[in-house]
Design a protein around this nucleic acid. Structure first.
Lengths: 131, 131
DNA sequence: TAATTGTCCTAGTATTACTAGGACAATTAG
DNA sequence: CTAATTGTCCTAGTAATACTAGGACAATTA
């Protein structure tokens, strides 16, 4: 696995790195016990400082997705995929909350909102996932 | 109308101010032609510098919600409420996009997502809107 | 004319997200 | 055992953002 980031994206580098790893775990390309690319290697590939990568990995460790082993590397934990799903489910719920808060200040009705979600979901099936 | 902000909220002061005004316009407590509280007054109430308020108001002007009149004040534009709804509809769509992107990386199915939205919407009717 | 209000400008501060790199410690490969 | 790999800790500096602070001025209103 090679982690890359978009230097022209305003999202902080360390978040792009955590997102890339989280996605890889979610999609199964990184599985329990798998080793992440070493900090220094990712630093070279992403062209950021090794401390930035270090902080990204540390973040993932705090979230329970990976675990550091001195002198050996970072490894996906046994329940890493599960943890990832759980925390992503949480953020889905949070996003629904935000969405409803935003929608409540418009004249969009509950039914209309569901239709909008359905429509966008269809578009997403066609375009988004095929990429 | 008195604009207040939460100093312990990490959201930038200028955004809290624009949000407060946008919400007031959305809810109808500020209507077309109504005058916003003067920059200096809002600065005192929110305990931020007048330049910060100035930038918040300028932001709202760029969005077409309000208009400045030298020596007189900021006034809600004729189509301010409409503009507000339009831009909020846009951000609802954007949030739906984010939501689907997040959901696509979980094992949540389209049907399940709709149910989640429905459930949260019900909770929202009971708690959220009554506040 | 005086007060109110928006506008413009310069200078300084705190926080965040880094860059940069030395020094060291644990582990692994040869 | 040694050397290479890899994570850890630390200090110092930088760029951007979101401010604080306040003087000076211009347009409008009472």
């Amino acid at each position: 696995m090679i982690i890359t980031i978009d230097l022209y994206n305003s999202t902080p580098a360390y978040l792009q790195i955590t997102d890339a790893v989280r996605e890889a775990i979610a999609l199964g390309s990184l599985q329990a016990g798998d080793k992440l690319p070493p900090i220094r290697e990712t630093a070279v590939n992403t062209r950021v400082n090794r401390n930035t990568v270090s902080r990204a990995y540390l973040e993932l460790e705090h979230q329970g997705l990976v675990q550091a082993r001195q002198g050996s590397g970072f490894f996906v934990t046994e329940d890493g995929a599960e943890q990832e799903k759980l925390s992503r489910r949480e953020s889905v719920k949070a996003k629904i909350g935000e969405l409803l808060a935003e929608a409540s200040l418009t004249d969009i009705t509950a039914e209309e909102l569901l239709k909008l979600v359905e429509n966008e979901a269809n578009d997403f099936e066609k375009e988004g996932k095929s990429k």
